[in-house]
Every structure is written in C-alpha cells, then in structure tokens.
Nucleic acid binder design. Structure first.
Lengths: 339, 339
DNA sequence: CTGAAAGCGCTAACAA
DNA sequence: TTGTTAGCGCTTTCAG
C-alpha cells in the first residue's frame, strides 16, 4: 500500500546488479568481501528487507504453517492448548516459519479452506488440533500432495499423518497404577467421539480384564472432556456405585471436576477413593489434592508435529504416525484401596 | 514443493489468453458469457486456485493480519482472549483476510518482527493484544507507514492507533453503581502497568472523590489481573479494613478471586460486602454469587480493531483512537450497603 | 470482447 | 567475482 525499498534500489545505490545484492543478502560466499560490505551498508542504511511474497513465489514456499483449532472460545480458556501451540510455535520459529491461525468452523469447512490454503500456497502445511470423529472432511486430504497433519488424534483407517500422545500406553499406565494399589471397583470417566479417547477407554478395559475384572462390570460415564462433565460423571458414578474406590479419567479437566465433586461431598481423596487423570496440565499439580496423572508432553507433541509437517511438505508421499511416550506422575490423589 | 495447476494451464486448455482467465476468475464483466462458461468449466475441472503469493505480489497486499499475543501459556487459559480474537477473526474472514499468530516474546522483540513482518509484506497489519507499559518497542511503530494497532490499551502520549474499551467510563459506571447502593467504605483491587488499568484506577478515585470520599482513604491492592491475585488482594484488604462494605475490581478474574476468598471466609456477598468486576467474561455469570460487572464487548472490540487495522493499511497516515462503550450488568454480587 | 506485453520483487542458471 | 537473462504466477494497461 506504499512504496518500499526494493532490491533494485539497493543495487542501483551500490552500482551492482540485482543478483549481486540477492547473493549478498542470502549469504552466498562467492561475493567479494568488499562488495559484500558495500551492499550490506546500503541494506542497513535503508533497513532493506526482501519482500516475502516475491521470495515465496520463486522458492515455491510460504514459510507459513496453519494451526487449525476448533472454535476460539473453546481454544482460549483451555489451558491444554498453551504448551501444544507453544511447541508448534517454537519449532516453526526456529525454522523461520510463521503460524497462521485457522478456525475449524462451518465457513472453514464450506469453503474447503483446509485444502485451499494449501493449494493457493498460503501455507506450506496444516496442523489440525482438537479434531474429533465428526471431522470427516479430513479424509479429503488423503492422497493429496499437501502437508496435512492431525495433532493428538488421528483418522482411523486413513493414511493421514499424525503426531499424538500414546493413549494406549496412557491407559495401560493409569490402569496398572490403580490396579497396583489394590483397587478392583473402578469407575471410568472418558471422552467420546475422539479416536484417541476411545482408544484410551478401550485399552483401559483390556487392562482391567487382564487383571481379572469383568469389563462389563466397569461403569463408564462420558465426561465430555470438561471439568463440569467430570463433576457430573463423578456424581453419577458414585451414586450408582457407592462401592467404587477409584476413578480413572481420560483427562485432567474431568479428573479435577471429579475431585471437586468428591470434595463437595466430603469424600476423602485418596483415603476413600482415588482419582487419576491424564495430561498433566498446569492446574493438575495445584488441584486439591494434587492430582496423580499420566503426563503427556504437549509441548513436545506440538514441536514434533510442526517438525513433521515440514518434513511432509518436503515429501508429501509419506505418512507419518508418531506416538509420543507418556509418563506416570504420582501425586496425592491416588492411594491404596481401602480395606 | 510440487507442480500445481496454474492460470497458464487453464488458458491453454481453453485456448484463451492468460488475461482472459484472469479476468474471468476475478469476475470482470467484460468477458462474454460463452468464454466465461468455458473457462469456469476448466477451473472447476482442475479445481484451479490462483496462487496467493503471485496475486499478493501484484496487489501489494498479503491479505493477512497478525495478532500479537503475550506468551501463549497466558493467552490460552485466559478466557478473555476468546471473544477478542474471535471478533478479529470474524472481521478478517469476512474481508478475505487471514490471521497470523505472533508471540510478543524476547525473540520477537530482538528480531524486531513487529516491524519486519510489515516491511517484508508478510502481513498488512498488526494487532497488539494484552500489551503493557513495558512494551516500549511499540513506540518505534509511530510515524512508520505501517498499520499497527494496539488493542484494549494504548501508549500514553504517542500517536499510535488503538481500539479499546472505555475504561474511564467503566470506572465511572462501577463507582456510581456502588456509591448508589450507599457504600462509603470501598476497597479497590486494580491492575497496574497497563495504561487502561491505570486510567480505570485513577478515574475511580476521582468518582469517589466527587462523592465526597477522600481518595487517600481508599485502600488499593494490585491484583495482577489474575484470580489468585484477586483472592490475595481481597484477603489483604478485608484484614486491614474489616469495615469495607464493597470491593471494586478492575476485571472479573480478580473479582472472582475476591468472591472465592470471601466465600472461604464465610462472608455473605452481597449482604455483608458487595463485589463488582469489569469485563463480563463468560464465567462471571456462573460465579457464586453471579457477578455484577461492567460489560466490555470484546468481540466488538476485536472486530472493530481488525476493521480499523485494515483502514490503517489503506491510509497509514491517520491515527485511530476508538473507545468502545461499556454497560453495567447487574447481577447478584452487589447490594445495598449494610446499615 | 480478447490478446500481447510489461511488470510486481526476487532467485538462479548461465555467461562473461 | 559479477552481470545478464529468464522466469515464479498473476494482474493490468493498452492494442486490436
């Protein structure tokens, strides 16, 4: 919208050609120290910055990644996104990439922006955050020459790249921790309609079954991934099954909701009943009692997701399936089953 | 990173010139219906999308706005950002603009990205969210031909554009509401190091003074804009001044923190003590008791900020100073001063 | 109503 | 070591 200083201006000012200036600013060593100095001087003097679109046009890259989140109201307000997007941001920045923010809303899907942004070259890759089983449009990206990657989830049966926490392992770790403490009457607060969450639920049942517990006898409630949902699920579970000595939640928010319910009811945690979550969000350690959980390193997941998106951009023919390991974090909310 | 279908392909396929295709896809009416049809057919067939960088190079625009937030951990986890960025996003989308996400961290400032992104043409404008008095680098944008805009704050004494809630009005509305309920012993929980917050604090004192209250007798605590800060400030205020019958907080998070403290202490709100906040974040209505507050329409502020950033892009010579009106929302947390 | 040609700002062969 | 030239994909006069 205004006249900026271009490579031409610098070239003219220094009495050299465009390519010389180009080579200098790109650090090509085949330019003599003398002219390099002269050019750099002019560059500094005018504070010249090469136009990104012109560069991108030639290099066929936008040096931009898109992060697609669900509705913003949900994204902001969810502490879980912080480290995840932080990791993406960090990796992108280190590689000279910028982040675009996209919203997976009706308009986004109708306009097919998930494919347009890639096609028009506005972004080199897209990272889909917090997707669920209803996001079937993602399947349209399968087989395209574009760098699309699902973060912390995946499309079952589709060769679409993803980087996610190892939820099967989380279920195993959480289940075995609770079993190891002697619990047999266990309730599950899980999420649904998300592949990783369903994998967690299912694997958990398998782990309990391996320990001789009839899966059909394990009560399950959908906590909708939220704290109020967890609160409500805990209420429902404990009212129907007063004998429960442990609650396993699919994420920390639901676990914290359960904790709040139990506190309200005056139930002693972990003396009477144990609670374990998944994620290790920042508030888990500050919960009362401090929440035992299975840590998911979302910063790392984000970082790795960005890294792989760029790898995908280089070679879109591959399908990346990265599972990031998890780790038990023992705090106060779990203890031996009461006698 | 791969061969995409270009305007040339379409032109060749239809046996027309590049310009004809260009005119068609840009909806120029001077093309005959017949060729238009033919071209559109090919466009659809190949799902052709014009390259954004090439377009941008010609039009000298990137059709991208940058939203600069402070550290992401703070941004995600703060429900306040949702409507604000939602408004920006909505306005941008309506105008065919995309959003870039930038972080006001050390790297961002050191690399002077706040000016580079504009200079290199990566973005057409920048919106700075949640700035404070330490962000002095913003002054470097004054007098440049770039579209920079501070959201919900401003740089005192600098001709830098901003769109913000009318905090002086908020202070007036909150103060008069509390005074109108007969309160005379009033404590203030405010934020600091942010121009709008300081304006709020100062205006509030003026309002109280107008009502005959000695400003020096009004106790103030810095609540750091956070819920724990508000909790702590309420503790400090009520312990030092047990006679207080009302607490005015500079935002809802601090007010909710105060509410939590008072609840813990068994102090009846609003019977014994009234609490009022500012913002009307989503959780204010769900607080117990429901929080009386001064509503700031952040969606609208965000929307208007994006709008003005684009206006600034068109004509960077102007300085925009928009104040968005506020509105009292009376709920349960305020009531008549006890006798 | 359509096409040819110039140019947006930059990079990258290829010459010199 | 440096300059010339030809694009990257698109828009936009200006001719025809």
């Amino acid at each position: 919208m205004h006249k900026a200083v271009t490579i031409k201006d610098i070239a003219r000012e220094c009495g050299v050609s465009l390519s010389t200036v180009s080579l200098v600013i790109n650090g090509n060593p085949r330019i003599s120290e003398k002219t390099r100095q002269r050019v750099m001087e002019a560059v500094r003097k005018h504070d010249y910055k090469p136009n990104a679109q012109a560069r991108g046009l030639v290099s066929r890259a936008s040096y931009t990644l898109s992060v697609v989140v669900p509705e913003l109201g949900r994204a902001f307000g969810d502490i879980y996104y912080g480290p995840l997007i932080g990791g993406i941001y960090e990796c992108a920045t280190e590689r000279g990439y910028k982040l675009m923010l996209d919203m997976n809303n009706e308009t986004f899907r109708r306009r097919k922006e998930y494919i347009d942004m890639l096609k028009t070259g506005r972004v080199d890759g897209m990272l889909f955050i917090a997707t669920n089983n209803f996001d079937q449009f993602l399947a349209e990206l399968v087989g395209t020459p574009y760098a699309a990657l699902v973060v912390n989830n995946w499309l079952p049966g589709q060769p679409l790249s993803h980087v996610a926490a190892d939820y099967a392992q989380s279920a195993r770790v959480a289940g075995e921790h609770i079993l190891g403490l002697g619990h047999r009457q266990i309730g599950v607060i899980g999420g649904t309609n998300v592949t990783t969450a369903e994998l967690f639920n299912q694997t958990l049942l398998e782990v309990l079954e391996e320990a001789g517990i009839d899966p059909d006898s394990v009560p399950f409630r959908d906590g909708g991934f939220t704290e109020p949902g967890g609160f409500e699920a805990a209420r429902s579970l404990t009212e129907n099954r007063p004998d429960l000595t442990a609650l396993i939640a699919g994420n920390d928010r639901m676990a914290i909701g359960a904790l709040r319910y139990l506190e309200m009811k005056g139930r002693k945690v972990p003396k009477e009943i144990s609670v374990i979550g998944v994620d290790d969000i920042a508030t888990a350690a500050q919960a009362r009692p401090a929440l035992t959980t299975v840590r998911h390193d979302y910063y790392r997941i984000g970082y790795q997701a960005a890294e792989q998106a760029l790898a995908l951009f280089k070679d879109p023919s591959q399908t990346i399936r990265d599972l990031v390991p998890v780790e038990l974090v023992t705090r106060v909310s779990t203890g031996p089953a009461p006698a």
